[in-house]
Every structure is written in structure tokens, then in C-alpha cells.
């Protein structure tokens, strides 16, 4: 083990600064995520804020979906390192997501989820 430590010594000190900067990124990302979460909750607490109240009820849903996607993206890209890591990993994960969205949206369309509103069975 000691031998290993020596072997890795230089590489580690070299990577030190990089890790520190990552830590900064992590904290900033987390603050951003927290703010978005607050905004999400705000759509419930104050539904009449003009930012998401477009007068037709669609605004809240759309804003929530957008905020959800942004949170999803940043957790994946930063915390799960997809931004820094081998592209193959991101491809694998995105394949799963795209496939899931594709087939399940098709199911929801077949159930007239988007057209029948509450009358859908």
C-alpha cells in the first residue's frame, strides 16, 4: 500500500487544485438547485405570480416541467460527473431516458392523457 501511495503521490497533488475547484462547482450547483426548488414550491404557494400564471393554467405545468428538467440536468451533469466523464456513460443514461420518455409518452397519448383531461380513464 505504501508503494502505491508513493506511486500516486505526484498525480494526486497535481489533481488537488482541480478537486478544490470542483467542490466550488458542487456548492454553487447545490445553491442553484435549492433556489429552483424554492421557485417550484412558490408556484404552489403563490400561483398568481405573473411569471407562471399565463391565465390558462398551462403556465404552472410548463414552468414546473422546465424547472424539473433543469434540476435533472444539473444533478446529472455535475453531481454525477456526466459533464466531465467519458461520453459513453452519458450516452447509456440518455438512451434509457429517451427510450423511457418515448415509449411512455406514446402510452399516455394512446390513453388520450393530453386531450381528455380529467375525463380520461
Amino acid at each position: 500500500m505504501t508503494a502505491t501511495a508513493v506511486d500516486h503521490g505526484p498525480a494526486e497533488s497535481g489533481g488537488h487544485a482541480e478537486h478544490k475547484s470542483h467542490d466550488r462547482t458542487y456548492v454553487i450547483t447545490a445553491i442553484g438547485l435549492a433556489i429552483i426548488t424554492f421557485a417550484e414550491t412558490a408556484t404552489y404557494l403563490w400561483p398568481k405570480v405573473p411569471v407562471w400564471d399565463w391565465g390558462d393554467g398551462v403556465g404552472i405545468t410548463v414552468s414546473l416541467l422546465v424547472m424539473m428538467a433543469v434540476k435533472f440536468f444539473f444533478v446529472g451533469a455535475v453531481f454525477m460527473h456526466l459533464k466531465f466523464d467519458n461520453k459513453l456513460l452519458a450516452t447509456t443514461f440518455v438512451a434509457g431516458i429517451v427510450l423511457a420518455i418515448g415509449v411512455y409518452l406514446a402510452v399516455l397519448f394512446a390513453f388520450r392523457f393530453f386531450s381528455a383531461g380529467t375525463h380520461m380513464v
Partner: peptide, 15 residues
């Protein structure tokens, strides 16, 4: 994150 938005926050009955 998905569940919080889709299940809890998006109002039921909203188009």
C-alpha cells in the same frame, strides 16, 4: 426531482 414536480406540484386537472 421528477416525482416532486410531476406527482406533488403539477395541479391535478390542469391541462
Amino acid at each position: 426531482v421528477l416525482i416532486f414536480a410531476v406527482v406533488y406540484l403539477i395541479p391535478v386537472g390542469a391541462p
